[in-house]
Amino acid sequence: MKVIFLKDVKGKGKKGEIKNVADGYANNFLFKQGLAIEATPANLKALE
């Protein structure tokens, strides 16, 4: 799953980066902790 990092995550990505991560990692950790959002077309456009 492609995500946009909202904060730096050690060993995974930095704020503003768009990366592929495992679905479970994104859903169970990144999204719940507010560290990333899904890289949907709307979210990508808002990032610009």
Results as ranks from 00 to 15, higher is better:
Asp8Gln: 03
Glu17Tyr: 02
Lys45Asp: 09
Asn20Gln: 13
Leu6Asp: 01
Met1Gln: 07
Ile4Ala: 02
Gly13Leu: 02
Asn43Glu: 05
Glu38Tyr: 04
Leu30Asn: 00
Glu48Lys: 11
Asp8Arg: 05
Met1Asp: 02
Met1Arg: 09
Phe29Pro: 06
Leu6Tyr: 00
Phe31Thr: 08
Ala39Val: 06
Ile18Val: 13
Asp23Glu: 15
Ala26Leu: 07
Ile4Phe: 05
Lys19Thr: 08
Lys12Pro: 01
Thr40Lys: 03
Leu44Arg: 07
Asn28Pro: 01
Lys32Asn: 12
Ala22Ser: 14
Leu47Cys: 08
Ala26Gly: 06
Pro41Phe: 09
Leu6His: 01
Val3Phe: 00
Phe31Asp: 06
Lys32Ser: 13
Leu35Ser: 03
Gly34Lys: 10
Ala46Val: 10
Asn28Ile: 06
Gly34Leu: 06
Lys19Val: 13
Gly13Pro: 01
Phe5Cys: 02
Glu17Asp: 12
Asn27Val: 15
Gly16Leu: 05
Gly11Lys: 07
Asn43Lys: 05
Lys32Pro: 15
Lys10Ile: 12
Ala36His: 00
Gly24His: 14
Leu47Gly: 05
Glu48Gly: 12
Lys15Thr: 09
Gly13Asp: 02
Met1Tyr: 08
Lys45Tyr: 08
Ala42Val: 09
Ala26Lys: 03
Leu6Val: 09
Val3Trp: 00
Glu17Ala: 04
Met1Thr: 14
Leu30Ile: 03
Gly13Cys: 07
Ala39Trp: 11
Lys2Val: 13
Asp8Ser: 09
Asp23Phe: 15
Asn28Val: 06
Gly24Leu: 11
Ala42Gly: 10
Lys45Ile: 12
Phe29Thr: 09
Gly11Ser: 06
Leu44Cys: 12
Gly13Val: 06
Lys19Cys: 09
Asp8Ala: 05
Lys19Phe: 06
Ala26Met: 05
Asn43Gly: 05
Gly16Asp: 03
Lys14Met: 12
Ile37Cys: 08
Gln33Cys: 15
Gln33Ile: 07
Leu47Gln: 09
Asn27Gln: 14
Thr40Asn: 08
Val9Tyr: 04
Gly13Trp: 11
Ile18Lys: 03
Phe31Gly: 05
Gly16Tyr: 07
Gly13Met: 03
Phe29Glu: 10
Val21Leu: 06
Lys7Ser: 11
Glu17Lys: 03
Lys14His: 10
Ile18Tyr: 02
Asn20Arg: 12
Val21Glu: 02
Glu38His: 08
Leu30Gly: 02
Asp23His: 15
Ala26Ile: 05
Glu17Thr: 06
Ala26Val: 05
